[in-house]
């Protein structure tokens, strides 16, 4: 990654810690998000960010259910 284009911050709380970097490696900017507790990374582009902004409250709450996606019995089966 091109160092001069990296502006990293950590959005952290006692519950989670996410490293946030504006990633200019591609043909356009995107966010590189890293879960610092597991090292898992996701890149998020402008359209995906817009989708998050427009998520209804109830929908966001559903995603916060630990069983929604991350901690479920059927994953990997």
């Amino acid at each position: 990654m091109n160092d001069k284009n990296v502006h990293g911050v950590v959005i952290g709380s006692e519950f989670a810690e996410i490293g946030v970097i504006v990633d200019d490696e591609g043909n356009g900017p995107r966010l590189r998000l890293e879960d610092r507790r597991t090292g898992r990374v996701r890149h998020v582009d402008a359209l995906e960010l817009e989708a998050i902004i427009w998520l209804p409250e109830g929908h966001l709450r559903q995603l916060l259910d630990p069983s929604a996606d991350r901690w479920r019995e059927d994953i990997g089966r």
């Binding site: 006692e14 519950f15 709450r61 916060l64 259910d65 630990p66």
Partner: peptide, 28 residues
């Protein structure tokens, strides 16, 4: 701190900051 929801560190039960339970891991 600032967090709209809280996750208990013991088994991961997660709450909204009004106390409402949002979910728990491995719900089966």
């Amino acid at each position: 701190g600032n967090s709209n929801s809280f996750r208990c560190p013991y088994h991961g039960w997660t709450y909204r900051n009004n106390g409402q339970l949002l979910g728990y891991p491995y719900n089966q």
